[in-house]
Amino acid sequence: MKVALFVPCYVEQFYPEVGIATLELLEKYGVQVEYPLEQTCCGQPMANSGYQRFGDDASRVFMENFGDYEYVVAPSGSCTLHVKEHVLGESEVKVYELCEFLTDILKVEDVGVSFPFKVGIHASCHGLRGLRLAKSSEIVGDDFNKPRTLLEKVKDIQLVELQRKDECCGFGGTFAVSEEAISVRMGMDRLADHEDSGVEVITSADMSCLMHLQGLSKRNQHPVKIMHIAQILNGAKPS
């Protein structure tokens, strides 16, 4: 199976290790991964700020790079959602967030790694309520959680229950800057929930939420570590 890897702009620039983990992970499962070199960004930063029209060029670049593939996989729920809702249009390209690609398409059963730490899952809202990677707490129905299902296959991991299992971290793209005070407060509240529950490593399918939480925990010298779920599934350890 061949897939195109979409690495969101901020991951490409600031968290190459997350891109690498995603690539290696897919390769480990026998997927032929191509990374179109001319890719930039999905245009979400502009669109969510009210300037969808200024994101048109980014969308065009996206389609030029990915339009001919059957599958595109990205290590981000948020960017995947934006592409599906605002970039693809009539195109038949199937875009998947990494976790759902692993559970739904590759049907991964064995991950073959160990991670002996207490881990808290941060449910990124766009992955959760946009892509339905898990059942959100508001909805009534059968429970499911794709990132958690994958992590449950990791040896020695201790998944920790939170007080508020799917409250937003307050990142929200330019919201983090335009509503700085409340964004910071939301992030600190999330960190506190994880730390009160004894979490050693916070993980998520979205690096953008994690960048915000990491920025806060570093500034406040909290010991909690931050890792993208691809890194854990690929066998990395907290540094």
């Binding site: 690495v7 600031f14 190459p16 070199l37 800057v177 700085e180 920025g215």
Partner: peptide
Amino acid sequence: TWGKSRDLPEPPKESFKEWYR
């Protein structure tokens, strides 16, 4: 504004694209 209460990520030595090449 980002950095008022948050650290910025450490800039890595190379981007993913550079690594990939």
